[in-house]
Design a protein around this nucleic acid. Structure first.
Lengths: 109, 109
DNA sequence: TCTGTAATTCGACATATATCGAAGTATAGA
DNA sequence: TCTATACTTCGATATATGTCGAATTACAGA
């Protein structure tokens, strides 16, 4: 047993732990939605959202939201960057590719 | 926001929670390995293992192993069936497809 | 029926986590 | 410099989780 997945068990377990909380999963899913309803999608754009917006329909305290953002970032799932008063969040496409491939690896043989 | 992923947030969060424990993730990964080292793979076979074997290199008590198997099953990630003294475990291929697609959905647009 | 192996259930316990509110920091704008 | 907004940090707390060992159940074989 020694393929790339088994060598990174801790890392993946950390990602899944971050996604195991329904509120965090919602935040993550919002960041995977590439365009706001009614607009045209553009392949090349990476969707960026502000922390505050991500928590808008989540019904948690600001401090809790901040905590969740930090956890997602720590797990390597999202990137964050301050922009004035706001903090921008986004997902690097490689993260989604990596996770998708993780579950495909078992199917291909 | 209303695609198939967002409508099943709880279900997916449950799966990720099950995979968030390193020992459970190891068990899951073992079940995705379709053939034992040195043998020839066969597409058509679903890999089945006994509970005891899955815990062989895990260093947890039998009761803990049993608990983890139950959690994985409860999350819908693995199937179990008693076979004599042993209990067989396996992953339905659709589960892997579903999880892989979950992370692909954000990339395709 | 007895024995041994495989697995589960149960109760206990230490640790981790989700959440909150209060207080603090960072930034923009008047 | 003052104020408002966005976000973070901190401490507290209730709840969930991972783990164990002991006891129990399921089954196979002598």
């Amino acid at each position: 047993m020694s393929n790339y997945r088994n060598n990174n068990t801790q890392q993946y377990a950390g990602m899944f732990k971050a996604l195991s909380n329904p509120n965090r999963l919602q935040i993550f899913l919002q960041l995977t939605q590439c365009c706001t309803p009614g607009t045209v999608c553009n392949n090349k754009d990476i969707e960026v959202r502000y922390v505050g917006d991500l928590g808008a329909d989540l019904n948690v305290a600001a401090s809790t939201l901040s905590h969740h953002i930090k956890e997602l970032n720590r797990a390597g799932l999202i990137q964050i960057r301050r922009s004035g008063q706001n903090v921008e969040c986004w997902i690097e496409p490689e993260v989604l590719q990596k996770l998708s491939a993780f579950f495909q690896a078992g199917q291909e043989q």
